[in-house]
């Protein structure tokens, strides 16, 4: 029942988001064909008007668009000479963005979990204060600024990593990593700070609880208490924040892709904006928004599965 209700909400949100995406073309001031093919002939413009159903009502346009979208037709890049479908490129660039976000998230957790646990355990010490100050600074670095600086110092000056471009992991895994490492670090830095600070405050509260005292009294080693007993309840908090963070992560990934010329969704959006391809743009916005909604939905479900309190509350 609970799942069904959630699923209903999901469906409504997806519909509303697609409605927003298709409204983008409507919001465009003036004649959309002027924007899409500024140098097209009158005949070409008329054809495009027909194709986009600009002479009909918004309801017709939206339902046509939604039907096409649902069947995988994401519209075209319109040029005077030829029209290329958006979906071809999208299926190539989506994995790049997803990989980037996945790597960044992994890197962030690898650093943030031990740091969060240790700073909580050593609360108030020199180590804790330094880490906290560092985290505070990391939160304030704009990701594009960090990207340019890493590109310059580690890429250009020291020549350690590749600064722009991409290789797919199936072709050459090593090159793939060389291209991905700087973007991943750039995207992960802010996330590390968020997770670390959160885990720290969560753990400080957990460490005051009776079951920790119990574990200490039983003579368990600190390491075991920290990572086995104390970390477990915090994992739910981490999951919640990871869920809340996905929006920021997506936005960050798009920007970082532009900085490092990674051919993902961000670069695709960048080109679509530069070439005024609003139809392609709105399809991409819809795809990104739906992905975002689906991931949030998954986090919600996962949360229910993991936390016995929520699980039982839903049953009754």
């Amino acid at each position: 029942m609970f799942i069904l209700k959630k699923f209903g909400q999901l469906l409504v949100t997806v519909i509303l988001v697609t409605l927003f995406a298709s409204l983008l073309l409507e919001l465009l001031p003036g004649d959309p064909t002027e924007v899409l093919i500024p140098s097209g002939s009158d005949q070409q413009r008329e054809d495009l008007r027909q194709e986009l159903k600009l002479d009909q009502s918004f309801a017709v346009r939206y339902s046509t668009w939604l039907g096409n979208f649902a069947t995988g037709d994401l519209g075209n890049y319109y040029t005077v000479s030829s029209d290329r479908p958006v979906s071809d490129r999208l299926w190539q660039s989506l994995p790049v963005s997803l990989l980037l976000m996945f790597y960044a998230q992994m890197l962030a957790l690898i650093f943030a979990i031990p740091l969060g646990v240790l700073t909580a355990y050593r609360k108030g010490t020199w180590f804790d204060r330094t880490s906290n100050t560092a985290a505070f600074a990391m939160l304030a670095i704009p990701n594009f600024a960090l990207g340019f600086l890493l590109q310059y110092y580690l890429g250009v000056k020291l020549g350690w990593f590749k600064t722009s471009g991409y290789a797919s992991p199936s072709e050459s895994p090593i090159e793939h990593l060389q291209y991905m490492i700087l973007p991943t670090i750039t995207l992960a830095v802010g996330q590390i700070a968020i997770y670390m600070r959160l885990l720290r405050s969560d753990m400080i509260a957990t460490l005051q609880q009776d079951f920790i005292l119990m574990a200490k009294a039983k003579g368990l080693k600190s390491k075991r208490i920290l990572f086995r007993h104390a970390l477990r309840p915090s994992s739910l908090t981490l999951l919640t924040v990871a869920g809340l963070n996905i929006g920021t992560l997506i936005g960050g990934a798009l920007i970082v892709e532009v900085v490092f010329a990674l051919p993902g969704m961000g670069l695709m959006l960048f080109e679509a904006i530069g070439r005024r391809q609003i139809v392609a743009f709105q399809s991409m916005v819809a795809v990104i928004a739906i992905l975002y909604i689906l991931v949030n939905f998954a986090v919600d479900l996962l949360y229910t599965v993991l936390d016995p309190r929520i699980r039982n509350a839903n049953k009754s």
Binding site: T13, L16, V17, F20, I246, G247, T248, I250, G251, G252, L254, I255, V285, I288, A289, Y292, I293, N296
Partner: peptide
Amino acid sequence: LLAIPQFV
């Protein structure tokens, strides 16, 4: 409005 990533 919250269902769309803010930057997007």
